[in-house]
Simulated assay, not measured.
Amino acid sequence: MTATVPHPDITGTALAPRDAKRLRDDAAVADAGGALTAAQRALVHRRGWLGTLAPRAVGGAEWPLPRVVALEEALAEADGSTAWVVTLCAGAAWFAGFWPPALARDVLATHRACVAGSGAATGRAEHDGDGWRLQGRWAHASGAPWATHFTVNAVLHQHGVPLHDAGGAPRVAAFVVPARCVHVEPTWRAIGLRASASHALRIDGAWVPASHRFVIDAAHATHDGPLWRFPFRALAFATLAAVTCGIARHFVALAMPAVAVRLASEGAASPLREAARDAPRQLTQARDAFYARLDAAWARVEAGLPAHDAAAAVEAAARELVHAARRAVDDLYPACGLPAADAGSDINRVWRDLHTATLHALWWT
């Protein structure tokens, strides 16, 4: 069993200070332009962050999940959009553990490999010879402009008729598709995470071989290791919660100087004094509980033990962490003054990123 990785209070060992500075220095320009800057993207590829969850045997880094989560939180403290792209695209590259090794090796060997995608089953896949013909539109794929490959979910069809499982529900399958088969539609106009470029994608009848279809289940993993035994839903909860937490911690750091000025001019009974004390403390408590549950679940999976209950605990702790992050930001925001309403200010960008991140469908299922 590997040692538990530390979860630093700021960025610590999770992210080099010079890398955090590079991401943060470009954050405003990226936000205004609606896309990560060339320097940010180059850093992401240079550090190999998009491959942290991919199998080592086919070219990935295969980090322990707690280490990946700590990195994603630290990235979010530097820049929410960069963290969002890394998290979603590294998560899509995790699927390489369920692909045939030759396919995974080819995808990850692509120059500046980046796997984006959507979990919504808004496409159709018609059985066609030795493969599948894909058609459909998927609303959001973070990092879409830079993707070399996409993963999509589609309802299976045979001779134009949708297939159903034993319970009568439509049969849905996942596919990996080269970017040359995909049309990216520039639809992302959210108030936050603007530089994540989470645009829509469309596929108009592209054919892929049967090997490009995959099943996200430990029983179908093509690589051994705890990453592909860890339940996917809990992995998604953990990574997205960490990003949300990192954005909230960045907001708190930016807000506290303004809060201190307000407190200096208000009496001891000011409601703001309680918020200034409780918001950061409650966020830290939720964060500590989250990492404790994540470490416990990871240890069980590493040891080959059943992880259902531990995974459920990770999901619950992730939900509470996201709620604590939103509460902390909303409790402190009114004390930050009009600069926090300036769309060009750092604190406004971070506020917008936080409230966009917490709208992810995962938190409302």
Rank of each mutant, 00 (worst) to 15 (best):
T4V: 15
H7G: 04
L15F: 07
A20G: 13
R22W: 00
D26F: 08
A30F: 05
G34F: 04
L36I: 01
A39C: 02
Q40M: 04
R41H: 03
W49F: 11
G51F: 11
A61N: 07
P66D: 04
E73M: 14
A74E: 02
A92E: 07
A96H: 14
V115H: 07
A121W: 00
T122Y: 08
R137L: 06
T148P: 00
H149T: 01
H149E: 01
T151I: 10
V152R: 11
G160D: 01
V172G: 06
V182C: 10
V184G: 02
E185P: 00
A190I: 02
I191K: 14
A195P: 04
A197C: 09
H199D: 13
R202G: 03
D204Q: 11
A210M: 11
I216R: 00
D217N: 13
A218C: 04
H220P: 01
H220K: 09
D224H: 12
F230G: 08
L235F: 14
G246C: 07
G246S: 06
A248G: 05
R249W: 05
V252T: 12
A258S: 12
R262A: 14
L263D: 03
E266A: 09
S270N: 10
R277F: 13
T284H: 09
A289V: 09
R293Y: 04
A307Y: 03
A312W: 09
V314F: 04
E315Y: 02
R327L: 10
D330L: 13
D331K: 12
D331P: 05
P334L: 06
A340E: 00
A341M: 12
A341I: 02
D342L: 12
G344T: 05
I347F: 00
I347C: 11
R349L: 14
W351E: 01
L354E: 12
H355E: 03
A357T: 06
A361L: 09
